[in-house]
């Protein structure tokens, strides 16, 4: 499936069906990020139930240094 992730076009494997699958594929720890799909903030408890669709625009947001 083709997705836009953090501003970049990416193709993910066919086994990625949910937001949780995507984080697993990218080896990103769920506790460190929030996921936004097509401008909707996904609930962390629902990541495994949040289906991804072709062309979804996804932001994976984390905490970085700041004042």
């Amino acid at each position: 499936m083709n997705l836009v992730i953090n501003g970049q076009q990416r193709t993910v494997s066919a086994s990625v069906a949910t937001a949780a699958d995507l984080l697993d594929e990218l080896a990103i720890k769920r506790e460190r990020v929030a996921v936004v799909i097509n401008e909707n903030v996904a609930r962390r408890a629902e990541l495994a139930d949040t289906a991804l669709n072709e062309g979804d625009v996804i932001e994976i947001i984390t905490m970085v240094g700041g004042g």
Binding site: I5, N6, E59, I60, T62, V64, G66, G67
Partner: peptide, 21 residues
């Protein structure tokens, strides 16, 4: 401690680089 929220740097992450957390 304050932090900002930004995109995960996917390239850096895939290279195994550490991050603030």
């Amino acid at each position: 401690v304050t932090v900002a929220l930004r995109r995960v740097d996917l390239e850096a992450h895939s290279r195994g680089e550490k991050n603030l957390l």
